[in-house]
């Protein structure tokens, strides 16, 4: 079971933004706003077998999750990116399925804390 600290290391996120709480809030808001569309794009790419598209979208989401110090979600997107890079459709599909519950809990943690 992933702990809350593994979902979001808020202290680390704040350090990455030089302690600027308002900046962190703006970045979290941007993430929450953009995530549904970006995840949907990734899923659409997967459904059409466009693994290059999946790889690019997973790379973007990995970067965004990393900026906010979301370790579990960052790992999930790194796994998707790696599987898509190998053009391994079953592994990519599996990695996406494992990501969904982690993403749900991460977004919930972000919404609660900000």
């Amino acid at each position: 079971m992933i702990t809350t600290a593994e979902l979001w290391n808020k202290d680390q996120a704040l350090r990455r933004m030089m302690g600027k709480e308002s900046l962190l809030q703006r970045v979290v808001a941007l993430f929450l706003e953009q995530y549904p569309t970006q995840w949907q794009t990734l899923r659409s790419n997967l459904e059409t077998g466009d693994l290059a598209g999946v790889q690019a979208q997973a790379h973007t989401l990995k970067g965004s999750a990393g900026e906010l110090a979301l370790p579990a979600l960052t790992d999930c997107f790194a796994n998707i990116e790696q599987a898509a890079k190998m053009r391994d459709l079953p592994a990519t599909t599996s990695a996406c399925e494992q990501t969904q519950p982690v993403a749900d809990r991460t977004l919930e943690a972000l919404q609660q804390d900000c």
Binding site: R16, M17, M18, K20, L23, R26, V27, G63, S64, E67
Partner: peptide
Amino acid sequence: DDQPSSRLILESL
């Protein structure tokens, strides 16, 4: 950077 959050962070830093 194509990501708005990355641009925002880098500019703010």
